[in-house]
Amino acid sequence: MSKDSILKNPKNLKRRKLINSVMISLCVLAGLVTIIPLIYIFFYTTQSGISSLNVDFFTQLPKPVGEEGGGMANAIVGSLILISIGGLIGIPVGVLSGIYISEYSKSFLSSIVKFTTDILSGVPSIIIGIFAYGVIVIPMQRFSALAGGFALGILMIPTVTKITEEMLKLVPMSLREASLALGVSRWKTTLKIVLTTASSGIITGILLAIARAAGETAPLLFTAFGNSFWQTKIDQPMAALPLQIFTYAISPYEDWHRQAWAGAFVLIFLVFVVNLLVRFVTRNKFSGNL
């Protein structure tokens, strides 16, 4: 058969067009399946949460059962502190191990690190909470924000490591060579060329890790524990939004349920805003390369 006959054969063409449109429909469908739950969650939380939101929610402490009103100010601040501690641990450790795996991939140790990170990312978060309980809560003989932050930090490590590794691997070898050929040392090349080139991807990964950690409840149960009062000392039990939402949602009180919705809304909104904000700030005028 010559080339022309393939082009001109209408039967073949029709069949191909059909297959093409079926495949496209499947892709669109899959896309919708991904988007719909997100939109649903977003709208449902907004709808149920926004009506219970007021200034008090951000400024007041929780009220005892039976009293109307109150807020989650302590939990909001607590979450921010816990995430900061988690980030201080998880981001540097994750980024550095990602660099190690990607840039020094030929060493035996780095393959162990890679393997361990993969395993760690599959460990259920409650187990990580128990681990933090064992290494921090028991020796300190007290629940604390430190233990909660530590658990969140451990939880962030595999995500940050993985994304750093992947992003660094996307940086073409030719850029490393270009830098080395200028007489730039290996570590400066990694830091100033490779890491910088991959930075927007890595930042996105860090955001994902933070967003995930911000919503974690299980690892905080035996670590930060929760607190109905103001607490900003990191060696003390501390309230956190997901914990508070959890406690309120399983309570039998209508008023607490409404507050739980408000909390859920604030949590989602915060994650959303942080995402947008960092994207905006790190928007690189030289982007489009990765």
């Binding site: 850029l175 060579e177 270009a178 050929a181 200028l182 007489g183």
Partner: peptide, 18 residues
Amino acid sequence: DIRKKVGMVFQKPNPFPT
């Protein structure tokens, strides 16, 4: 130090993209 003395230009242009 050797590489500072011996520069290299590659097959594919590779300016630093950032």
